[in-house]
Simulated assay, not measured.
Amino acid sequence: MTAPASTLATAFFAAFARHDTEAMVALCGTRARLDYPAFEIPGKTKVLRADGHVRTIGRPLWSGLIMAFPDLTVDLRGLVSDHTATVAAKVVLAGTQKLPWGNIPCQGRGFESRQLFILRMAADGLIGAVTAYWCNSDLGRQLGYHEVN
């Protein structure tokens, strides 16, 4: 019997709150997709985006976030599920920056970011896709980073 979507989502965010990226990845299928539309790092020749797979993009992204913000808190504020395939989760991430993260240099500032996660379950009973939305300009502002285009 497959666990309800809400059970998997709750376990995923509990692992995130423990800074256990391996447990987060283990709750996702081997081909699970990751899409963070707000996340991008401009480079010299291309823009790096968080659009790919949990194992190749998500794991290092989450690990880097935890390293840059060692006091990171993950507060699951609400969860809506259809009990089989999709979960919408209201999550608040907060922490104090101790290392550079992406293109944001460390100024020792803190942030609090309200985020919406959409988790879609796969046929194998694991998470098949993770999508998250947040206001990137507000996050940058809180950390003292102002990107000029």
Rank of each mutant, 00 (worst) to 15 (best):
Y145H: 11
A50W: 03
T73N: 10
L116N: 01
F12Q: 02
H83R: 10
R18G: 01
W134P: 00
P42G: 11
M67C: 12
M121I: 11
L61Q: 11
L126F: 03
N103V: 04
A26N: 05
R114A: 10
Q97M: 06
R18V: 02
S63Q: 14
M67W: 11
T45E: 05
F39W: 11
R77V: 05
D51S: 15
A94I: 02
V47L: 08
A89L: 00
I127C: 02
S113R: 01
L8T: 01
L93C: 11
L61Y: 11
H53M: 15
M1Y: 13
V47Y: 00
V54T: 05
C135F: 09
G110T: 11
A38K: 02
F16R: 01
V54K: 02
R33V: 13
C135W: 10
K98S: 13
R31Q: 15
W62I: 02
F117P: 00
V80F: 14
D82K: 06
L79Q: 07
L65Q: 06
L116P: 01
R31P: 11
F13I: 01
T30Y: 07
G110M: 08
T45L: 09
V92M: 05
M24H: 03
G43C: 05
H146V: 14
I118Q: 04
S81K: 00
A122Q: 05
I118W: 01
R31W: 09
Y36G: 10
A3D: 07
F16M: 07
K46H: 10
A50V: 02
A89V: 04
M121P: 00
A9Y: 08
A26D: 05
N149R: 14
F117Q: 00
H146K: 04
F111R: 06
V92E: 10
G78N: 11
A14V: 03
N103A: 14
L65H: 12
V25F: 04
C106E: 09
Y133L: 10
R59Q: 12
T30S: 15
D35F: 10
R120L: 02
H83A: 08
G78T: 12
A26H: 07
S137N: 14
R49D: 09
I57P: 00
R55D: 10
K98E: 07
P42Y: 06
H19Y: 05
T10G: 06
R55H: 13
R55Y: 07
A89G: 03
H83V: 10
F69I: 03
I66P: 01
R114Q: 13
L143S: 06
M1D: 12
Q97Y: 01
A129E: 14
G144Q: 08
P70K: 09
W134C: 10
T84R: 13
L34W: 08
L116S: 15
K46M: 13
W101P: 00
R114I: 11
N149K: 09
W101V: 00
G140W: 02
T30M: 09
R18F: 08
L139R: 07
I41G: 05
E147V: 03
R31H: 15
W101C: 08
G128R: 06
H19T: 00
K44E: 14
T7L: 12
A132D: 13
G52Y: 09
D124C: 00
V80M: 14
L8F: 04
G144V: 04
S6R: 06
I127P: 01
I118V: 15
V47W: 07
H83Q: 15
G128K: 10
G144P: 05
R109K: 12
H53P: 07
A123L: 14
P105R: 05
K46D: 09
R120A: 15
L143N: 04
